[in-house]
């Protein structure tokens, strides 16, 4: 997958390079599994995923629950191992903690209620044997000012937005080049979200940090990212520059996501569901993964997995995995 060289980056290897990553969860049916509706046979969470993130780039991975987006985040962070494939950050394996940070979805769960914010931020420094003076600078970079006042506070005293800032500060402490953010604003109130998004952009601009922004919200993905990658049932179905994918969605799934987005714009058409049913649990259909929910599916869709190819009429780097992409009617 060769990315178009960006204006502000060199044409050399990307910062993050993911190639052919597959993960299958083994069948282990405990009571928890039963309650979580995980079936007995192995579940393919990721199926041969390729992904690049260049230095200073924000790439959004968009998908519903069950799309494999969180698994992808965890594989890249090194929390779980891929069954197949390669994950490289600056040409090194995923254990290079210092260059990859992670921000989790739930800031209430990410901070240990029993430890101070300073202790949280210092944790990575301590584990890596780095100097502690980065605690203050990290808190400041996350706009927790004055840093000294925050160091000794406990999570209980903080709002959700402030907690997420602390989590970001904890990631910044290790001076990462890439931060993986798994739904970093979905648990926050609307008014808190803007502040965190602002911080993410600011850190990209000022420190050149690249972000892998994982979200279910296509609006957010479009607004914050340079590139959007749409994930469905563990595979990339469409990718391209954010503007291109939104203006000219080439995959029926992306179109369904877009049509389902409610809008506060009084002029916008009301939402409607273009796709039937829900993301299947367990059994991935043969051929195109989306075909059993797709309004445009034909017999040929069942035959083989559609490869990711240049989107018809799309710009550079806009690729789609749909054999009918060229025949889809224009989107109303």
């Amino acid at each position: 997958m060769s990315e178009q060289p960006r204006a502000n980056t060199s044409a050399s290897a990307p910062l993050l390079r993911v190639r052919g990553v597959s993960v299958t969860y083994a069948a282990q049916r405990s009571i928890a599994d039963l309650l979580a509706r995980r079936p007995a046979n192995g579940i393919v969470a990721l199926d041969s995923v390729d992904l690049d993130v260049n230095a200073g780039e924000i790439v959004a991975v968009v998908g519903e629950s069950g799309s494999g987006k969180t698994t992808l985040a965890r594989v890249i962070a090194g929390l779980i191992d891929a069954d197949e494939g390669v994950v490289e950050v600056e040409g090194e394996g995923p254990n290079d903690w210092r260059s990859v940070g992670m921000v989790f979805q739930d800031p209430y769960e990410t901070l240990d209620p029993k430890r101070t914010l300073g202790e949280f931020v210092a944790e990575g420094l301590e584990a890596q044997g780095l100097p502690m003076d980065r605690v203050n600078t990290s808190l400041e970079a996350a706009e927790l000012l004055p840093a000294a006042a925050f160091r000794d506070r406990v999570p209980e005293e903080l709002s959700g937005g402030q907690r997420q800032r602390v989590v970001i500060a904890g990631a910044l402490a290790l001076n990462p080049k890439l931060v993986i953010a798994d739904e970093p604003v979905s648990m926050l109130d609307v008014s808190m979200r803007a502040q965190i998004l602002k911080l993410i952009e600011q850190l990209r601009r000022d420190q050149g940090i690249a972000w892998l922004f994982i979200t279910h919200d296509l609006s957010l993905a479009w607004a914050i990212s340079d590139r959007v990658v749409v994930l469905y049932l563990g595979a990339v179905v469409e990718e391209g520059a954010a503007e291109q994918v939104l203006r000219n969605p080439a995959h029926p799934y992306t179109r369904a996501l877009l049509a389902a987005l409610p809008s506060t714009d009084p002029g916008a058409a009301s939402t409607h569901s273009l796709a039937a049913g829900e993301i299947p649990q367990g059994d991935t259909p043969s051929g195109c993964r989306f075909r059993n929910r797709c309004a445009h599916a034909v017999e040929a869709c069942a035959n083989k997995r559609p490869p990711l190819e240049a989107a018809p009429g799309g710009g550079a780097g806009h690729r789609v995995a749909c054999i009918r992409a060229a025949e889809l009617p224009p989107l109303s």
């Binding site: 090194g78 929390l79 989790f104 944790e123 990575g124």
Partner: peptide
């Protein structure tokens, strides 16, 4: 819990 997972992520040893 996520905070334990994140501690693992930044390289804290099990005893710590």
């Amino acid at each position: 819990r996520t905070f334990v997972e994140r501690a693992r992520l930044v390289g804290l040893s099990p005893m710590r």
